[in-house]
Amino acid sequence: MIRSKQVTPFGPFARLGVQAFMVILVLASLLPLYNVLSASFKSIEEYPSNPIMLPQVPILDNYQYAAFSGHLLRFTLNSLVYVPIGVALYIVVCVMAGYAFGKMRFALNKPLFLLVLFMTIFPQLLLATQVSKLISIMHLTNTGFGVVLAWVAYFAPFGTYIMTTYFADMPYEFVEAARIDGASPIRILVSVMAPLALPMVATLAIIGFQSMWNELPFSMLILQNESLRTVTLGIAVLRGQYGLRVPILSAALVIAMVVPLIIFLLFQRYITLGVTAGAVKG
């Protein structure tokens, strides 16, 4: 993606202007985050009189309160259990369906695929009432599995679409060779096609992780007990809670940012691929 520097229509002044513009944009993105970070180390007494500058006397009390009394630590651990399970199921469902749509022939391939495509954009609020009712009927309210199931169902259409395009672009010869060897369809998928699709599966995992980690409406309705909340739900609920002042809320926000930022630093390449997987080819 690097392009040769000499091929550019910009003169030195234009270049400087663009740089300045980019720096302003970056500052605009970072200032709210700086604000949260600095507030999280201020005492409740200091914050109102010093909202802008660094804390005069940095304290860790807010973190202690947010992590333990505010249960942010617990919520983070909850997310760290639900989301990976959700992502694993999501991968299984999407890879199987993507392979069927992308590399197999059956009468309903096109209509079913169109149906799946049609469902990639449904708003969650359209489904929320009935989904929470359905989960209750299945006696999965207040279970991690309940919310995982709802997540996988909701995010699967897009994942299936991505896997379908990927499998469809793979040469058919792989399948044929395996077939001639007498491998069963499941075997072909598990030992031939899925391994070939690993880079895309990694991207799929990142997409699934981000979607599920940041999900709110379903977890709000399905995880009713405080001890079960996800970190995203925890933050949304904390905001309205009595007794939570800006510095404590800020500490909670910082705690909630940790895992996504680590994931970002570790898997930036796959995130980049994930953004482009939906629509751009090659």
């Binding site: 929470s132 009712k133 209750s136 009927i137 309210t141 309705l221 009713q224």
Partner: peptide, 11 residues
Amino acid sequence: PIIQSAAAVND
């Protein structure tokens, strides 16, 4: 809403 969803399944 949580009360409502409990009512929906009567539990």
